[in-house]
């Protein structure tokens, strides 16, 4: 299908690929050594640890900083065994990520939760799963279909409403999302809902007008019910690399983010960037997404997340 040049290039790539396979095997072998704890602490070991962190999407900065801290501690605490390195690194990482957080609960009246994030991260699915989970706990849940932009987003949330036995407040496609949010909160108040979950349209954090729209939705919710929203969850796709940090910064500029949902951890991506995000925003990770089923939203657990970062496949 492609021309000669293309074939030549593919040849070059297969070489590159072989090279990659070799580095991979080399790395795994070294790490196994490291886990056996028989080796000494060498410069190479530090580099390997750095590599593990970078490959888990922690980011260059965070990886370098963590390894620097590690070096300092090794020196200060006169650590000799290589196997201790991973332990210390895990400690530091847990420190960075912080304690997991629980979903906010408004003691007086409904709890309003807004779900935000860039396109395709899993906002609607997470909202649906959260509804399912809350209804399962005996709560009365109302969904607000404030993604009035994406084709069939409203229908998508409606199906989740049926699945979770939560009712849905919606307007027409293309209508003002803030108005939907307002109506949802009003309806929740009058119906005595325990939770009002507002799904919003995916938007890139660099689109200023859409970020202003988000800000407005937040403001209007506050007008419908003083003190609301009580929770604004930023949904981050575990497959995302360094850009998640930029997402976090710009989203939190528009609305006060109170927690993070990390989705798609059922794949092979490690989602390490969430460490930098949690550390920068100083907000806890609250849930993780492990699939597309209604049961696939789980509370975040720092310890097992960090363990998984170091797992090799």
């Amino acid at each position: 299908m492609w021309g000669l040049m293309e074939i030549a290039r593919v040849g070059f790539f297969s070489k590159l690929k072989e090279g990659l396979a070799k580095t991979r095997n080399g790395l795994v072998a070294k790490i196994e050594n490291l886990f056996q704890g028989q080796s000494e602490i060498t410069e190479e070991l530090y580099e390997d640890l750095e590599a593990i962190l970078v490959q888990a999407d922690l980011g260059v900065d965070a990886a370098l900083n963590l390894v620097e801290t590690l070096r300092e501690r090794v020196k200060a605490e006169r650590i000799k065994e290589a196997r201790r390195l991973t332990e210390i690194l895990k400690e530091e990482l847990k420190e960075l990520i912080g304690e997991p957080g629980k979903l906010a609960k408004n003691p007086e009246g409904p709890t309003v939760v807004m779900v935000v994030g860039v396109n395709g991260t899993g906002k609607t699915t997470s909202t649906g799963k959260l509804a399912y989970h809350l209804v399962g706990e005996g709560n009365k849940v109302l969904l607000g279909a404030a993604d009035t932009f994406r084709a069939a987003a409203i229908e998508q949330l409606e199906i989740w409403g049926e699945r979770s036995r939560a009712s849905v407040i919606k307007h027409q496609m293309g209508s003002d999302p803030a108005a939907v949010a307002y109506d949802a909160v009003q309806a929740g108040l009058s119906r005595g809902s325990d939770y009002i979950l507002i799904d919003t349209a995916g938007r890139l954090h660099t689109q200023t007008n859409l970020m202003q729209e988000l800000e407005k939705i937040g403001r209007v919710i506050g007008r419908a019910m003083p003190g609301a929203p009580h929770e604004i969850l930023l949904v981050i796709d575990a497959t995302t690399g360094q850009n998640a940090l930029s997402q976090a910064k710009l989203f939190s500029k528009a609305v006060p983010i109170t927690g993070i949902i990390l989705t798609k951890l059922d794949g092979t991506a490690k989602g390490g960037i969430v460490a930098a995000v949690a550390d920068t925003l100083k907000v806890p990770v609250k849930f993780i997404g492990l699939g597309e089923g209604p049961d696939d939203l789980k509370p975040f657990d720092t310890d097992s997340f960090v363990e998984a970062l170091f797992e090799r496949d």
């Binding site: 299908m1 888990a56 860039v118 995302t240 690399g241 360094q242």
Partner: peptide, 28 residues
Amino acid sequence: DAMTGQDAVTVAEEFDQALNIDGVILTK
């Protein structure tokens, strides 16, 4: 997705192995 991190390699490799893809579209 253009925002994909380190896992892009695994994803592409697996899709290519299973389907022998002909090309890629990079989004966002």
